[in-house]
Simulated scan of single mutants.
Amino acid sequence: MAETPSSKYDAVAMTLHWLMAALITAVAVIGLLFDLMDRETKLVWVNIHNCLGLAVLVLAVGRIVWRLTHRPPDLPATIDAIIRKLSGPGHLVLYVLIFAVPALGALTFFPRGQPVDFSLFQIPPLMTPDRAFGRSMHGLHQIGAYILIGAVCLHVAMALWHRLVKRDGIFGRMVPGRSI
């Protein structure tokens, strides 16, 4: 299916999408590997995970603001009714999760009295220490992270389905450059 320029997302939306995809992948991989790390290595990687997680949170806010102020391109008329019906709620779940999971992550380490060290500067703990609250948020963060990983996998599977099976042009809407 040939794409028209108006059927593609704009450059800002594409940049935010792919930057968030890279960051979420990195944060997820690091988080999934924590149990394999010794204590000292884990402390370094937890800080990197936290820094990248905060970057995801900032970008999530930016992405939500961009999405609310810039209408996405309409779906092609050839898209199946069921896909058309599920697309909006599916993307809404992703947006909620890309905001909620790093927000819950921040609520796991700030109540522990830990700063986030970006090397050039630190973000001090933004809350009064409350380890019990931090532990409860950690559990929610982990559950949310697994749900987000599942939702991202489903999103990727659907994108590949559109590209390789349906060949309906949906995949190319979020890819920079010419249509693929």
Rank of each mutant, 00 (worst) to 15 (best):
P115E: 03
T128M: 14
D117K: 03
T128K: 15
G139N: 02
F133Q: 06
G144D: 03
F133P: 06
P115D: 13
L126M: 13
S136R: 11
L120G: 12
G139L: 12
F118T: 13
D130G: 09
G139T: 14
S119C: 10
P115N: 10
F133S: 08
I143L: 12
F133I: 14
M137F: 11
A132P: 09
R135C: 04
G134P: 01
L126K: 02
S136T: 13
G113M: 10
P129V: 01
L120S: 04
A132K: 10
L140S: 00
F133E: 06
R131I: 13
G113F: 12
G144V: 00
Q122N: 02
H141Q: 10
R135Q: 15
M137L: 03
Q114E: 09
I143D: 00
P129F: 01
S136G: 04
L120V: 11
S136I: 06
D117V: 14
F118D: 03
S119F: 15
G113K: 09
Q142C: 05
F118R: 02
S136M: 10
L126W: 13
I123F: 01
V116G: 11
R131T: 13
F118S: 07
Q122R: 10
F121I: 00
L120D: 00
F133D: 08
S119P: 03
S119N: 08
H141Y: 09
P125C: 09
P125V: 10
G144M: 04
D130V: 07
L120W: 10
V116Y: 08
G113D: 05
L140Q: 06
P125N: 01
G144K: 00
F121H: 05
Q114T: 03
L140Y: 09
F121A: 03
D117G: 12
I143G: 00
L126N: 02
F118G: 10
Q142V: 01
M127I: 04
I123S: 00
S119H: 08
S136H: 10
T128C: 05
P129S: 04
P129W: 01
Q114I: 02
F118V: 07
D117M: 12
G144L: 03
R135F: 09
P129H: 04
L126Q: 14
I143C: 00
H141K: 07
A132I: 09
H141V: 08
L126G: 07
S119I: 15
P125R: 03
F133N: 08
Q142K: 14
P125S: 07
L140W: 10
P115H: 07
D117C: 09
P125W: 03
D117Q: 05
Q114S: 09
L140N: 01
F121C: 08
M137H: 01
A132Y: 06
D130I: 14
M137A: 11
P129D: 05
F121K: 02
T128L: 15
R131H: 11
M127T: 09
P125I: 11
S119Q: 09
P115I: 04
H138G: 14
G134L: 05
M127Q: 05
H141W: 05
